[in-house]
Design a binder for these strands. Sequence first.
DNA 1: TTGCACAATGGCAACGTTAACATTTGAGCG
DNA 2: CGCTCAAATGTTAACGTTGCCATTGTGCAA
Lengths: 334, 334
Amino acid sequence: MTAVKKSVSVKDVARLAGVSEQTVSRTVHDSPSVRLETKERVRAAMRELGYRPNFAGRSLRRGKFKTVGVAMFNITGTGNLDRMEGFAAAADKHGYAITLTKVDGHPYTLESASSRMSALPVDGMVVIMNRMPADFGTFEPLPGMQTVLVTMLEHPLCSTVDNDQFDCSRQVVEYLLGQGHKTVHFISCPERSLSGMQREEGWRETLRAHGIEPPRLVRGDWTARSGYAAGQALADDPTCTAIYASNDAMAYGCIRGLESCGRRVPEDVSVVGVDDSLGDIVPDRRLTTVRFDNKRVGMWAVDKIAGAEGAAPGVEHMLFPGVLVEGDTVRYVR
Amino acid sequence: MTAVKKSVSVKDVARLAGVSEQTVSRTVHDSPSVRLETKERVRAAMRELGYRPNFAGRSLRRGKFKTVGVAMFNITGTGNLDRMEGFAAAADKHGYAITLTKVDGHPYTLESASSRMSALPVDGMVVIMNRMPADFGTFEPLPGMQTVLVTMLEHPLCSTVDNDQFDCSRQVVEYLLGQGHKTVHFISCPERSLSGMQREEGWRETLRAHGIEPPRLVRGDWTARSGYAAGQALADDPTCTAIYASNDAMAYGCIRGLESCGRRVPEDVSVVGVDDSLGDIVPDRRLTTVRFDNKRVGMWAVDKIAGAEGAAPGVEHMLFPGVLVEGDTVRYVR
DNA sequence: TTGCACAATGGCAACGTTAACATTTGAGCG
DNA sequence: CGCTCAAATGTTAACGTTGCCATTGTGCAA
C-alpha cells in the first residue's frame, strides 16, 4: 500500500528505533559500547524496515571495497574452474567478494586488464596470464592497486603465483629415467602457451642435466586427436620407450594412437601426462600424471591481496609444485 | 617526491584544469555540451594527475552499481565455465561487471544466497541451482533486486533460464527409436541432481508417449567408471540395443564396458551421451551426444538483469534446446 | 558535596560524484 | 540597440555511511 521507498537507510532505522544514526551504525558493527537493550530495539527496526547497509556509502566512507578483481583473457581454460574455486574460497575467508572481468581487448596486454579494472570497485587485482602479454616487461601496476599475476614468470613490481611447470617436467623426466628409460620423448603444445613452453623447457633441461640430448619433439595442440597422431608418429621409433605429453588429453590420445599401431602401454611404451583431468572420463586406465592444486594457487593470489589489509605488502613470488600420481601407464624397463 | 595523495578526485582535476567539477564530470561522460578545447584541457589534467573515477561515489550518487552478482553453490560443475563465459560476455556488452560468490552455506537455500548477495554492490543476482534448494517454493527475492535462477523449474517470482533437459531426452529417445531400436536403456545419475532427474523424466515420458514401458534403469554417478560398470551390467541383456547415458563420461565408460564384454559399439549396441564434453579428450571415437549452449544461458541471465535498466521487467522463463550431434556410436537397426 | 572516570549515546562533517537548476556568454534578428 | 535563444559553464545539494568529538548520565572515591 505504502509507496516503496527506494532504499532504507540508517536514517530510517534510527528514526523508527528512536536513536541516532550513529547508534544504528554501531549496532550494525556490533560495537560493545551500545547497550544490549538498545541493540535489540535497533535490530527490530532493521528487521521491520528490511534494512541492508548500502555498499556504496560504506565504501565511499571507508575508502575500501573489500573486493578483489580477477581479470581473465579467456575464461575457458584448464584449471580456471579450480582457480576460481580458490579465489572464491579465499575471498570468502576474508569477507571479500570477487569481481570477474573478461579482457578480450585485442591488445593482449596487462595494461588493458589494468585499465579495465581501474573503473571497478576493487582493492586489488589478479590477472591470469595464459600467454605472454606484450607489455610484461614495462607494465606498472596502478598506484594503490595491489596486483598479482598468475604466471611462472617473475615480475619486478607485481607478486606472482603459479604451478611450477618446470619442476613438473623435472619430476616426470626423472621419474621415467628412474624407471630405466634411456630417454623421454615429448609431445608439446602450441607455442603461445606459457605453461606449455615452461613444461617443454623443463623437459629439455632435465634431460640435458642427465647428459641426454633431447630427441626431436612432436608438436600437438592440446587435443587428444593431436596426441593420437603423435602416438602413431612415434610408434615405429625403436628408441621411443617413454613419452611425456604436455597434457592428459594428448597423453590419452597418444596411448590410443600407439595401440592403433600395435604398441601396448605400458608394456612397450610408458606414457605420462599432466593435469589429472581424466579421472572421471576414462574408465579403464589410470593415467600416470601430475596433479596441480589450482585451487591453492587461486587462494594464494587472493590471500595476498585481501590478507595484506593496508600493511604495505612486498612483492612476492610463489610456485606450487605438482604431485606425480602413479597410474598404470608406466613400466619399469630392463 | 610529493606526498602521495590517497586518491585523485574530480575536485583536483577541476582545480588543475581551471574549470568546475561539473565540467570534469561532463568530460568524463563525454557530454556534447562541453567545448572540445575545454575537454582537451580537462583530459590533460586527468592524465597528469592519474585520475580515475571513484566507483563508490558514482554508485552512491546514481543508486546503481552496474554489477550483477552470481551465486554458486559449487563452482566446479559441468558447464559452469561456459556459463561464466556467457555471464562475462553479456556483462561486458552492457558495461556491467560480474561479482562471483560461493555460497557454501550449509543450508542449501535461495535465502542464504540472497542474503549473501544483499551486502554486495550488485543490482541483480543470478543463482545457479544444481540441486533443489529447501526453500524453492517459499523464496521471495529481495525487493529491488532482480533475481534470475538458472534452472528448469519455473519460479513464480524469479525469472529462470536453463538448458531444456527434458527436450534433450526427448530428442535422444526419438532419435534412437527412429533408428529402429525397440527401446532405449538409460544410465542415470545421482538423484540429487536436478538436471539429471529431468533427463531421466524426459527419457521415461518419451518412451511412454511411444507406448513403450521404460526398462529398469541403471544408476550411475556421473563418472566413466560407473558407466563402465553399467555397460558391463547391460552387456548380456538381449533387449538392450540402445543406451542413453546421462552424460558423456558415463557414455564413454559404457562403451568401454560393453567392449570389455565383447559387445561392439555401434554394431551391437548404440550409445548416446549428453554434454559434448569429450571432443578434445577421446581421440578415436565421435560420441553421438547432445550439445548445450551454456554460454547462451549465461548471457540470457545477465541480459535479463543488465538489459532491464529500470523498466520493471516481468518474470520470464526461458529454455534453450540442445542440439543432437551425430557421431559414430549409433547404428540403424533391422 | 564535589570531582572524576567511564559507559552510552548524539551531532556533525566528509568521503566523490552528478542531477537539477542557475548563470554567463555570444550570436542572430527585428 | 534591445531582445531572445542556445551553448557553455558554474553552484548547490544530496546519495548512505561512519570517524571524530561532544554530550549526557551514573556510580564511586575523595
